[in-house]
């Protein structure tokens, strides 16, 4: 093969790695737009307007209006922004718990490992939603209840990943070599172990996000989460269900679809980051 004959027969002008980065950027732009939209859209857009009740999607009301004449597009965007916000707090909290417990299990001796592993198994053996409902209900529901509930239920699988990763690296030959070169435990933790943990944590965090959002919506849908006054996506969906039989499909369709897209976007970011950050996989 002569170098000049290496024609790029790819249909896209970008190579795979650039496409991966492009995907990530598009997803981030979309999510930021939703959040900004939720903040900037003003409350007037969703005031009750009885003269325009139950209208199907049109140019003026992209997602139609509901039984009180509220614009569904504005409600959806605001609902999504709220959900992302709740998801963000929940995912950060969960990732932090996972990080602390994962490292503790791997480094603080057999007893700590046994106890933490037992708790992880306990949490994983019950479906998330059940524990989440229990915790949210005990704390009296509302914003605080749901956020604490989400934080306390989503950490176990990530904690397990981090525990395994730390254990594996601690026994790796390059760490043993490092110790014998006189490096302190602290130095090894920062220079050897952390660079392996950070990508795992970041990716784990991104993949927690969609879970947290979906579960928030589900619990709210069941009426145990955010209060009905807040424009959460779960509330919108649960209210809309009542009107489905009367043919007002747009009430549930668009918010549901948007929720799905948001969740997929986070998944996209997580998966693409995973490919970008692994030096051995980055050439696939």
């Amino acid at each position: 093969m002569i170098p000049s004959l290496k024609i790029n027969i790819n249909k896209f002008p970008l190579n795979r790695k650039q496409r991966t980065l492009f995907n990530i950027i598009i997803s981030i732009i979309f999510l930021v737009t939703v959040i900004l939209g939720g903040i900037l859209l003003d409350e007037e857009r969703i005031v009750t307007n009885l003269s325009e009740r139950n209208s199907a999607p049109s140019l003026e009301h992209l997602f139609g209006t509901d039984w009180l004449g509220r614009d569904m597009f504005a409600r959806t965007v605001m609902g999504l922004a709220l959900s992302i916000g709740v998801g963000l707090i929940g995912a950060i909290g969960s990732a932090l718990i996972a990080l602390l417990l994962g490292i503790a299990a791997a480094t603080m001796g057999k007893m700590a490992d046994r106890i933490i592993s037992w708790i992880i198994d306990l949490f994983l053996s019950v479906p998330h939603l059940v524990t989440l409902v229990l915790i949210a209900f005990t704390l009296g529901g509302g914003f605080k209840g749901i956020v604490i509930g989400l934080t306390l239920t989503h950490w176990p699988s990530l904690a397990r990943v981090i525990r395994a990763e730390v254990m594996q690296i601690r026994s790796a030959e390059f760490v043993q070599v490092s110790q014998k070169m006189g490096k302190s435990q602290w130095w090894i933790a920062v220079h050897h172990i952390l660079p392996h943990i950070v990508p795992q944590l970041l990716i784990g965090f991104m993949l927690l996000f969609p879970h947290v959002i979906l579960h928030e919506a589900a619990v709210t849908f069941l009426g145990l989460g955010l209060s009905p006054h807040e424009p959460a996506i779960g509330i919108i969906l649960s209210e809309s269900m009542r009107y489905l039989s009367s043919g007002m499909w747009w009430l549930a369709f668009f918010p549901g679809l948007c929720l799905l897209i948001v969740v997929r976007m986070f998944d996209q970011i997580g998966e693409n980051l995973r490919v970008l950050m692994d030096p051995t996989r980055s050439h696939d």
Binding site: K180, M181, G182
Partner: peptide
Amino acid sequence: SGYHPVQMVLQHPEKATNPRWKMHKVLNEG
């Protein structure tokens, strides 16, 4: 603790180098 006066070189160098470090960092570790 501290620098060990007896150093060892193992059979599989790929296990003895941190895969997330560039080679100059590996070289200058000690």
